[in-house]
Computed example of a mutant assay.
Amino acid sequence: MSRPKILLTNDDGINSGGLWAAYDALSLIADVTVVAPATQQSAVGRSISIFEPIRMNEVAMHQTRAYSVEGRPTDALLLGLYGLGLRPDLVVSGINLGENISFESITTSGTVGAAMEAVNQGVPAIAYSLQMNDQGNKFADPRTHKMDFTQSKEVVTKFTRHFLKNGMPAESKLININIPAKRIEGYAVTVLGERLFETSVEQRIDPRGKPYYWINGTPIYIPEEHSDVTAIRKNYVSITPLSMDNTAYKACSELKKMIADIN
């Protein structure tokens, strides 16, 4: 009996410890092909490189053949599907270094963006992210991280095996899973929380006297029952089914009334 086939990607880049922790976990249950960005691509969302060519290089890493893509996570996903002709049963994106929770994060996350594009191309997907207590580590050289992925790998193996065996929920082909940094207290099916940060822009002056800017954010917490943000704060694994349909259905009837008099 043949094993399931998984295309594995991420947004932290092909050198990320989280990517290769996911590879180790998934290799126990499936044949895994790694197709990932060559460099850090966090917060690029679902953007696609349509104005420039994309290079893909075959590399040997962690005793396996992988593919390094000089582009975004979605580029890597598309090159895997159509450049390499892969026909995976499932796409896995992650393990991302840093949680991807709330409306705010999933619309900017390259990890979730790649998973969304997989679903758009007809392949079910799971995005895995790991909470980080020190956010500065996310932007350090990924080869220098000293993180323990033992707990995360167990989650990846357990949930991926389950969805490969039982399929995805009827109304969602994309599952967003976030893993707490501390000891797991349980599992919770969640909805997206409202926000994670109070956004700010900091102006600084370079050595030549010219201004430059840092977009930053101060963490905030909006207590919402059943949200992914609340689950992570309680050290629960957050499991959120996502939909590709962004329609605000509850606004449709009101909008019809609002535009009724427009000629």
Rank of each mutant, 00 (worst) to 15 (best):
R204N: 11
P53I: 03
N96E: 08
P180C: 03
W20D: 01
K138N: 06
V91I: 15
S49E: 14
N57W: 00
D134L: 11
A231I: 04
T33D: 09
T107C: 09
G80F: 06
V91N: 09
Q40G: 02
V92N: 04
S49D: 14
I262K: 01
V156D: 10
N166P: 09
A38N: 10
W20V: 00
L84Q: 05
T247I: 15
G186F: 00
G167A: 13
L7R: 12
P4Q: 14
A115D: 09
V44A: 12
S253G: 00
I101G: 01
L77Y: 08
G71R: 05
P180K: 02
A76H: 01
R65K: 10
S68A: 10
N100S: 03
L196Q: 11
N263S: 14
I29V: 10
L97V: 12
N263P: 09
M116D: 05
K257T: 07
G136Q: 02
K173S: 11
V189L: 09
Y213S: 12
S2H: 14
Q151W: 01
E225T: 07
A43L: 15
P219D: 02
D11V: 08
T199C: 00
I205V: 15
R3T: 14
D75W: 04
K165H: 11
W214F: 13
P142Q: 06
L26S: 00
H226V: 13
S68D: 05
V155D: 04
K146H: 12
G122W: 13
